[in-house]
Amino acid sequence: MSTQGDDHTEPLTEAVAAASNSGHCITIAGSGSKLDFPAKPERVCTAGHEGVVDYRPDELVVTARSGSRLRDIESVLEGSGQALPFEPPLFDGRGTLGGAVAAGLSGPGRPWFGSVRDALLGVTIVNGLGQRLTFGGQVLKNVAGYDVSRLMVGAYGTLGLLLDVSLRVRPIPQTTVTLARECVPEVAAALTRGLLHQPLPVTATAYCGGVLRIRLSGSNEGVTHAGQSLDLDLEVEDDAFFQSVRDHAHPFFLDPGRLWMLSLPPGTAFDESDTLAEWAGARVWWRTDAKADAVREQARSAGGYAMPFPALPGEAPAPVAKYMRRVKTAFDPANILNPELLPRAD
């Protein structure tokens, strides 16, 4: 199955090749849903390079052009009862496939359904030399050559312009319910930790504003039994809460103030106000005016990392950053692709 769409493979390849030949820098953007880039250097947009190139529900694989709107891809998949496993934020429908891969953004179900990286099977890119290259493929298992495809996740287009992306998809569960209860942070943390140890069909958790929410997905019978076995005095809600968290449309995300994304070990109890904890405690959104160093230190002492959001590639420890720069050079020797978005040494 494929959908109509404009194939900009040639002009996009030529744009990078021209930059490579002349040595001038370019900024790669999708629809601009996440980052507001400066007008200079020259901008190359994948928006418009759209369409599902190949979709076979039997194979659980979809291949689409990078400028495709995630919402459009999801609606094609929905027709066959399938979805993108990593629940990327759709950003009012503006979010593109290439943007989701480049920024490495996954939604509420990530610990259970996997991340962008887990779903990614293959890519076609244009590297900084203007060469069009294909890595990975449309099969679930593939160990031929280094895993270049997954290196593109979270690389913000600094290693290559994404043209086509192949992803694994998943069946949409028969039933999804959200259970909720009010509780203090200590209780929420203990309950969440307990969930990690039970093979229940949990597919999301969140603690925000004194309310713990647990999402269950699966067969009708499986979800009903799981809900009963939890026996936590939980109330049933619809899916609106987790949809709004996924799309960053929940009021928490709309408040003013600096937003940080903390990646912590699963089960961490991170006790600060103005937080939204999801992924069984493995990701905490924190709105704070605290100094950047203090936020980073607090994340580090909890065993994790803090990144400002919208997230930039971030800071890596010195020896790791050295190899990241060399990887950049391996793909883009003249440093022409999104030069400001390189990972830095902390």
Partner: peptide, 14 residues
């Protein structure tokens, strides 16, 4: 590490 994500390129994938 024990977290699900880390900043910078995914060198682990390589």
């Amino acid at each position: 590490g024990k977290t699900l994500d880390a900043p910078g390129y995914d060198l682990m994938a390589a």
